[in-house]
Design a protein around this nucleic acid. Structure first.
Lengths: 197, 197
DNA sequence: GACTTTGTTTGACACTTGTCAAGAAAACTC
DNA sequence: GAGTTTTCTTGACAAGTGTCAAACAAAGTC
């Protein structure tokens, strides 16, 4: 294994450990020492592999994006009817809401932070673009399968779906049992309005 | 002026000063000393009027809500046609986006923080409810004026509109010139879909 | 096996944070 | 105007922060 690859592996390990802590505590309350404590490394190692805190967080965000924006690809590719696509999409979405809550919390936290911390903006923008494309792939396919066309453009579709999902992520903290069903219900109200009747 | 009123006045003054700083720096980077420095008071006074940091922030959030959830009431009440309501609503919305950007940034920041800080949740929930009702008043009136009925329920309508607005607030940091027009355009795409044709 | 490079630990630094308490100043009461 | 209460200032505290550098260990090289 090459030296540069080993370095990259360490970075990934550190980033994943950091993401776990960040997802738990949020950006504001997470310190480098806390990240190191919740990992198998010492706080010095963190600084050895990352220039400073922002460098680490920014790397984490970039790493995170590789895990999330392709979540629905299989559903999109295998669905043979609009019905199948819709139920598959809804199932995957409520599943990730429940199983990866900390990651989603962190995402919305970091996106908010990017409004104040300029250095985070490029990474956040890149992920937002990926997510927008992801939503657009789903909606286009949905339109194809129903023989319709979308009634909103990609950024609009993303903002709408994302609004519903963020509402669910925030609501999940207070009401874990009811929230997934509510999200499903609301998406079902909205999906048909996003394509021509 | 009664003693309790004078105390309340001080609290409001402190809260407003704190809100200014919070809107500028965001929750994570705002300290009590920074708040005091950007005000006419010393950091001791802050602690005299508020038990601790959370108490202050929570008071700020509660104070903030009184300023924002009634923003569109006049438009709703004076509009005599759907056209008038829509343009009035869009105008007010882009106006507050531009003129009160820091406040909106802060709101989305604090809502994200509430996912990690339990003490913020009740206040955030209360504001979310107010905003939902605000959106619902607009949509109901819009339906009335067009002789239609809403096709989505209140929480859904709020999540959708809020998704678009948050997108605009985040985007405004990177692209202040284009964003208001984009928001208007997207809302115009969406509004007709929220009522029966 | 000596030497160099790479990786890791540890402890320190300068600084900021929230919190609090002691006392000064101001306002109020009689 | 003395005495009391309220309000504010100041300075301190302990704890935590990001950052860094010097000592140490491991791995790799010749």
């Amino acid at each position: 294994m090459s030296g540069i690859d080993k370095v990259e592996r360490r970075r990934v390990a550190l980033a994943e450990s950091a993401l776990k802590t960040l997802g738990e505590l949020g950006y504001a309350r997470t310190s480098l020492r806390e990240i190191a404590n919740n990992s198998e490394f010492t706080h010095g190692v963190v600084h050895y592999y990352f220039r400073d805190k922002i460098d680490l967080i920014s790397y984490c965000v970039r790493h995170y994006k590789t895990m999330c924006a392709r979540r629905y690809d299989e559903v999109v590719e295998t669905a043979h009817s609009a019905e199948e696509l819709a139920t598959g999409f809804l199932a995957k979405m409520t599943q990730t809401l429940v199983e990866e809550t900390p990651m989603h919390r962190l995402w919305y936290d970091l996106r908010a932070q990017s409004m104040f911390e300029e250095q985070l903006r490029p990474d956040v923008e890149a992920i937002d673009r990926l997510l927008e494309e992801m939503i657009w792939r789903i909606l286009s396919r949905y339109a194809d399968l129903t023989g319709t066309t979308p009634t909103v453009d990609a950024p609009t579709a993303y903002a709408l779906i994302d609004g519903l999902f963020e509402q669910a992520v925030v609501g999940y903290a207070a009401n874990p049992e009811k929230t997934p069903a509510l999200l499903t219900d609301r998406l079902l109200q909205v999906l048909p309005r996003l394509v021509t009747a």
